[in-house]
Design a protein around this nucleic acid. Structure first.
Length: 466
RNA sequence: GGUGCCAUCGCCAAGUGGUAAGGCCGCAGCCUGCAAAGCUGCUAUCCCCAGUUCAAAUCUGGGUGGCACCUCCA
């Protein structure tokens, strides 16, 4: 397996720190608002990564944190006159529900900041003891970036000389403008935590380093964990700072491999609150099947930026439809776990830095081939068995095709409408039987008005929501 | 201003030195009472210029055009 390391900027062969095991940490959401498509993309990318790793026989310990201490959360709680926990629980639950809808499996661990404070204190103390951090007169604890010769080695940034010299005056007592807060002293606020450094709140970057040490880290290895992931925007400053903290506080580097997924833009523009174009997952799920969203968001390479638009989404749906139509043709046949030439090829291409595009091309070719044989040799037992094995493998590895194919094609149609359609189909079939094609065609027009497609097959007449 | 990424058919998108995957759309045909679905066939020389090489979409240099990060951010 090869993965692109965004720090070394090259595709590297993946070798775990410990034989047969993989430790993976991905920066999760700050739970103060609904998840948008970008959160979905990131979660999907690393969900796929764990599936591919597992398919290669690795036991994966995957941690994705929940940031439930944050100024934005506090702000929202004050605005809505609610308890912090009420806010964070609400959005955490929503996040879980939405992730499930797009087929993202729960990580092995979901550590919360509120449950990791002791680990954070320990890390800050280590940094203070080793002279990599300092506390200002007003109580803040900062990381001393000048004390870390490897600072900026992750993001390959060049320290600006002017910045370096600059002494930030005003309220801050930072030695260097690049220094970042490990602990923010807060005195005039109800939401504080009592630490050895006084009352306050932890810095954002601290949380991830602390959780990794607490839950995942190998103590005696060159690297704390195998893979660290997150969105491309996190490389700097978040991951740079995490890496600095861990490097300076402990005797190992943070991660052997760094993976960053590309951004989701909406109609060519970055999603942002100020532009007012945030596309929330919960809204997308009202319009589209979660699996269609999964398929669409995963359909291009994870490192590329992704430009979301509904036209392309519908193209992806049509592609997934092909998979489900084949499932429909083979409906009722037993699942099959056997290895096939197809399953080997599929894993092989995904092993190459998760080349999903080529994987999808393989799937399309497999579908066409199966349909062709089914068209010409209907009772091809061996082919059917093999195709079932292929479909089963796609479900497991990519999470596509998990639903009942008939239900999949009826997404968003209420039961009353379904009954109407079924009644009309029965009427039309009678007309067809009587060879009254004028009547059957007029009934078909009635059915099509429900925005569905009709298809007559040897197994009967089926309809699909367009 | 600093750092970095990208530019492949009408659209989406792989391929990163050996002669252009796949999907959508379109056209023709098979199948069908007619459709739909399915199948078959057809449809690009890879932004521009120069260079390296037996050989480049793929490497180098220079353009042009997009974009991201440098502040919270998936």
């Amino acid at each position: 397996m090869h993965i692109f390391d965004s720090v070394q900027k090259t595709k590297r062969k993946f070798t775990p720190l410990e034989e047969g095991k993989v430790t993976l940490y991905v920066c999760g959401p700050t739970v103060y608002d609904d998840a948008h498509l970008g959160h979905a993309k990131s979660a999907l990318v690393f969900d796929l990564l764990t599936r591919v790793l597992e398919a290669n026989g690795y036991t994966v310990t995957y941690a994705r944190n929940i940031t439930d201490i944050d100024d934005k959360i506090i702000k929202k709680a004050i605005e809505q006159k609610k308890d912090i926990k009420e806010i964070t629980d609400f959005y955490t639950d929503a996040f879980h529900t939405e992730m499930q809808a797009i087929g993202v499996k729960r990580p092995t661990l979901e550590p919360k900041a509120t449950q990791s404070l002791e680990a954070m204190y320990a890390l800050v103390q280590q940094l203070l003891d080793k002279g990599h951090a300092y506390q200002t007169t007003d109580g803040d604890v900062y990381f001393d970036t000048a004390s870390d010769s490897k600072y900026l080695s992750l993001s390959h940034r060049i320290q600006n000389e002017e910045d370096k010299q600059e002494r930030v005056e005003s309220s801050s007592f930072k030695r260097n403008s690049a220094d970042f807060a490990l602990w923010k002293s807060v005195k005039d606020d109800s939401v504080t935590f009592e630490s050895p450094f006084g009352a306050g709140r932890p810095g954002w970057h601290l949380e991830c380093s602390a959780m990794i040490e607490k839950h995942l880290a190998y103590k005696d290895r060159e690297f704390a964990i195998d893979i660290h992931g997150g969105g491309a925007d996190l490389l700097f400053p978040h991951h740079e700072n995490e890496a600095a903290q861990t490097r300076c506080a402990t005797n190992h580097a943070l991660a052997n491999y760094w993976m960053h997924n590309g951004f989701v833009n909406i109609d060519g523009e970055k999603m942002s609150k100020s532009l007012g174009n945030s596309f929330f997952l919960k809204d997308a799920l009202k319009e589209y099947d979660g699996e269609v969203l999964r398929f669409y968001l995963l359909s291009t390479h994870y490192r590329s930026d992704f430009n979301f638009n509904t036209e392309d989404l519908m193209h992806s749906k049509k592609r997934l439809d092909r998979l489900y139509r084949l499932k429909k043709r083979l409906f009722g046949l037993a699942q099959n776990e056997q290895e096939t030439a197809f399953s080997k090829a599929l894993l092989e291409t995904l092993n190459d830095d998760m080349n999903v595009s080529t994987a999808l091309a393989l799937i399309d070719e497999m579908i066409s081939g199966a349909n062709e044989t089914l068209d010409t040799a209907g009772k091809h037992k061996q082919l059917k068995r093999e195709t079932m094995a292929n479909l089963t493998y796609i479900e497991k590895l990519l999470g596509f095709g998990l639903k009942n194919p008939f239900e999949y094609f009826q997404f968003g149609v209420d039961s009353a409408t379904k009954e109407q359609i079924d009644a009309l189909i029965a009427k039309r079939n009678e007309a067809k039987k009587a060879k009254d094609f004028a009547l059957s065609d007029s009934i078909r027009d009635e059915i099509l008005a429900f925005n569905v497609n009709l298809m007559d097959t040897p197994q009967g007449t089926f309809w699909e929501k367009i």
